[in-house]
Nucleic acid binder design. Structure first.
Lengths: 147, 147
DNA sequence: ATATTTGCAAAAGGTTTGCAAGACG
DNA sequence: CGTCTTGCAAACCTTTTGCAAATAT
């Protein structure tokens, strides 16, 4: 496992430092999106000195390398998540517990058609995100902050 | 037209001030998403004194009232747009000129199915945004910054 | 040995807040 | 008139940057 992370890092031409490995371990331990500060707090339990900029820099590099994905919350914060799924997919996000579930459904073909025919433009990317309540949070009673 | 805006404002229990009306006029004049600062600059041509916080406060109120929509750009900035379309729809956004085109295609039913059957959760909302190049920008030659 | 990575402090940049003065109904 | 709105200045908060010291290969 730590082995895997080292290989991932080398594959991106990044040196395998303890901080980077632990960052990936922290993300691997969670199935919810984490903010950079969440990640920093979890990592600080394992390092006496750790700067928040280090977390940001590494998140950016891993994101650029396609190892992790991120979403922008309406509150303008970025949240990061470790991709376990190699294929193109989208996300269901529980607005209560922030749990993420990969969704393989994708309307890419239809979108291409709409844009080619109606707009006569070109699709570069698309965002599809489902916000809702997961099974677990549906069972707990109501109080969910508005989204 | 100005009449309309005054009615809209009253409908939201907001007083009809010149600043608010002009804010709506500015949005009505554009078919691209505008940043709060874009809006501020356009509005400043018509008022000697105008604070940026006023623009933010009014955008927030109009957004909360459902009169305008907004998107979060990958650069983390918020952009605002005047909804002319009452029905549920999504957006095609040209990443070069920021032009917005309403897209009526929606995979809502499929998403509901996926979530009900696979995740056993509940859909509260969904985001579908197509990023691409509009016909006009496709014709201009290449230099489009990466998205 | 050398290039990369990190910590720290400070800056940046967009957005929000507090409050007194002003405008709407 | 009382309440809502605005301007200004300052605060906020997340993210970025500069640079010297530390670390990986």
């Amino acid at each position: 496992m730590k082995q895997d992370f080292q290989q991932i890092l080398r594959g991106l031409n990044l040196k395998s430092t303890p901080k980077r490995v632990v960052l990936l371990e922290v993300l691997d331990d969670e199935s919810v999106y984490l903010s950079p500060e969440d990640i920093w707090n979890r990592m600080k339990k394992r390092f006496r000195r750790l700067g928040l900029p280090t977390v940001y820099r590494n998140l950016e590099e891993l994101y650029a390398g396609g190892v992790i994905s991120r979403v922008i919350h309406p509150n303008r914060q970025l949240y990061y998540y470790l991709c376990r799924n190699e294929e193109h997919h989208h996300h269901f996000i529980c607005v209560s517990c922030r749990r993420v579930v990969d969704v393989s459904f994708c309307a890419e073909k239809e979108l291409q058609d709409v844009v080619r025919e109606g707009i006569q433009g070109k699709v570069l990317s698309h965002i599809l995100q489902i916000n809702g309540l997961c099974r677990h949070c549906l069972q707990k009673d109501g109080a969910v902050h508005a989204y």
